[in-house]
Amino acid sequence: MLKVGIIGGGGYTAGELIRILQYHPEVEISFVQSASQAGKYVHDTHDDLIGECDLKFSAELSTDVDALFLCMGHGQSPAFMAQNNIPDKVAVIDLGNDYRLEESWVYGLPELNRAAIQQSKRIANPGCFATAIQLGLLPLAQEGLLGEDVHINAITGSTGAGQAPSPNTHFSWRASNLSVYKAFNHQHLAEIRRSLVQAQTNFVGDLNFIPLRGDFTRGIFATLYLECDLNETELHALYSQTYATEPFTHVTTANPHLKQVVNTNKCLVHVEKHGNKAFIISAIDNLTKGASGQAVQNLNLIFGLPEKTGLNLKSLAF
């Protein structure tokens, strides 16, 4: 059994990670650290886990584990790594954004960096928007088909803003509402561009990204379009071939919807051709494939387990 620890156990991504790892057949959760909640039962905070998880939050860090998941707020991981002597043999998977552009950490998008992930013990888990958008564009990038501009519109659920209360996550504001935020300058753009340039070194085009807040809790639904010379048959063949052996990224000829992916580690991708433009839909759950599920997928890769281990999760459907 792999022994794992979770640092920063009180938030949404940590809660989702605990839910997945509780039923991972090859994992034992050694501790869940939270300085602010030490001594409390985990199910007091993540109350759906009552009757399933008897762990208490710990104030202490232990390095007597095979892997650590960092679920702290953005900006906190470098200080944690500097203040704690984490042995090189302990795998560290950071779910924050601090190491996504660091050369010394492997960017943990399996569909792009699987071989490197398998050889590393320092993984920067991708952002949620970044995951959906990259998976929508990677087949084109790998064939050198990205042109000057890519236009992206993507909507996310309220859990993407984290568990700390804020005016734009309050139910009275969020319900029956819709708004744009961080248009053209979202923090995930840098990691998206880095991956696209890794796949297509001559890509210098603009990523015109308009993120939206949705009035639902989970999921990301991204629509993208760009000029492309391939016809629809060629587009579908390219995407199907690229993702044919991927365990979680699936190309569908049917128009996808969000409930197909919520509560799963799947990404559904759909492609069409309209005039001279390729139109792409990419849908994921921001808390699973966009965060904790992908982190477990990376854990499986690091330790040589089948990627789907512990991740056979059922969508909500209704």
Rank of each mutant, 00 (worst) to 15 (best):
T223N: 14
R114N: 10
P87V: 06
A116F: 00
S36I: 03
V27F: 11
P165T: 08
P78K: 02
T233F: 08
P247H: 01
N153D: 15
A199D: 04
N168F: 14
I152E: 12
R174W: 04
P247M: 01
A154C: 07
K56Y: 10
S120H: 02
T252C: 14
F69W: 02
L230H: 06
G75C: 09
A132E: 02
L230K: 05
H151L: 02
A38R: 04
V90M: 06
G219F: 01
L305Y: 07
N286D: 15
E103I: 05
E234P: 00
Y107D: 10
I220S: 05
R213Q: 13
F209W: 06
N208Y: 03
A199Q: 10
I302L: 09
E227N: 07
V90T: 09
A317Y: 11
E272R: 15
A254R: 08
E227M: 04
E191K: 05
D54S: 14
R194Q: 12
D54Y: 05
F69A: 01
Q119A: 15
D47M: 12
E26D: 15
I18R: 07
Q33G: 00
E232L: 07
D94A: 13
K182A: 11
Y99V: 02
N231Q: 11
A35F: 07
Q76I: 14
F209M: 12
V197F: 01
T249P: 08
T217I: 11
A222K: 05
L301H: 04
S30K: 04
P247E: 03
L17D: 04
V65E: 11
L235I: 02
I152R: 11
E232H: 02
L61S: 07
F57E: 09
L212S: 11
L299D: 03
S195P: 08
L189E: 01
E232I: 03
E227Q: 12
G162D: 06
S315K: 11
K259R: 12
H24F: 03
K273C: 08
G136T: 08
Q198V: 07
G96P: 05
E103V: 06
I302H: 08
E16P: 00
E60D: 10
Y239W: 06
F216L: 01
T249N: 11
A116H: 09
Y99S: 03
F31G: 01
E227Y: 10
A161K: 06
I7R: 00
F279R: 05
S176L: 13
D54N: 14
H186D: 12
A82G: 01
S179E: 15
T264H: 01
A154Q: 02
Q37M: 14
Q33L: 11
P165F: 05
L196E: 08
Y181F: 15
I117A: 01
Q200G: 08
Y239G: 06
H24A: 09
A38H: 06
A183N: 09
Q260G: 11
L146T: 07
G157D: 09
I133C: 02
L135G: 00
F171M: 13
V269F: 10
A130S: 15
T201M: 00
V296Y: 02
V271G: 01
M81S: 13
L238G: 03
F80S: 10
E272S: 15
L226M: 10
A175I: 12
S58N: 04
T233R: 12
V42M: 05
E246T: 13
